[in-house]
Design a protein around this nucleic acid. Structure first.
Lengths: 130, 130
DNA sequence: CGTTGCCTTGACACCGGCGACAAGGTCTAG
DNA sequence: CTAGACCTTGTCGCCGGTGTCAAGGCAACG
């Protein structure tokens, strides 16, 4: 399988696949003419990468999952390094949820306050007009 | 007040203040020798910018708040444009909270699954060893 | 007059995951 | 032979908010 076919089957671009290669996530063989040649297993790898990226992982986080798949496991999740990343990411997400919740409360408060201020201004204006 | 003093009092850098100026958020006068001269009110403006940035606003979002302060309001929140931004941001944060919650559940599930798989592998290994 | 310390504009660097383009090699069909 | 559809490497650009350096002007003090 050449890079164009893999890109299409994985729903991404050749540019992206080459980029993953420079980051050490995908490792094609080379044919005699220098073309990158991928075997079927790489499709699975690329899917894993795309899925985890969509969740919010960065490429460095994803490396253990790829290694896990490459080690022959049916899922990229089951190896200790992957589990460690999952734990860390979960903690990060929790922390971010907290922060975002705080921001939400702050926004809510500010919005309510601003509207109240406007109401009061209108009220005073009505009073003055009489 | 020159740029260095404002930067220090606002807890930021001169570089940052010049950048805000290019983005139209801060407008110093110029003294005869070309130095930027800020009046006291700009300190308030810069504080507003920094506070909103910390919440997660970008500079374009912040512009209405600055305009509101500059229009003489005690708070940057009370003008209609600011309120509109607050509403939009609140909606964005809510959407993001939803997405992040989904990610959290996904991570949680993946983690539980991975651990369960490992347990089972260990179990089978013990069975085989006997 | 020189040093120090402020100020000025302009420009490059960063991060991450690519998009986009250039200039060229390769393979196949007509 | 040529067109076109692949492939190759290399490079620049983007986004946003700065850090950082360069080269030079101005002010004040000794």
């Amino acid at each position: 399988m050449l890079i164009g076919e893999l890109a299409e089957r994985a729903g991404t671009s050749t540019r992206t696949l080459r980029y993953y290669e420079t980051r050490g996530l995908v490792r094609p063989r080379r044919s005699a003419n220098g073309y990158r040649v991928y075997d079927e297993a790489e499709l699975r790898v690329v899917h894993e990468i795309r899925t985890l990226l969509a969740i919010g992982f960065d490429l460095d986080d994803i490396r253990p999952f790829v290694a896990c798949l490459r080690a022959g496991h049916a899922s990229g999740d089951v190896c200790p390094d992957s589990v460690a990343v999952l734990r860390r990411k979960l903690a990060e997400v929790d922390a971010y949820l907290d922060r975002l919740g705080a921001v939400r409360r702050q926004l809510h408060h500010q919005l309510a306050q601003a509207i109240a201020d406007r109401e009061e201004t209108c009220f005073r204006r009505r009073q003055t007009e009489r």
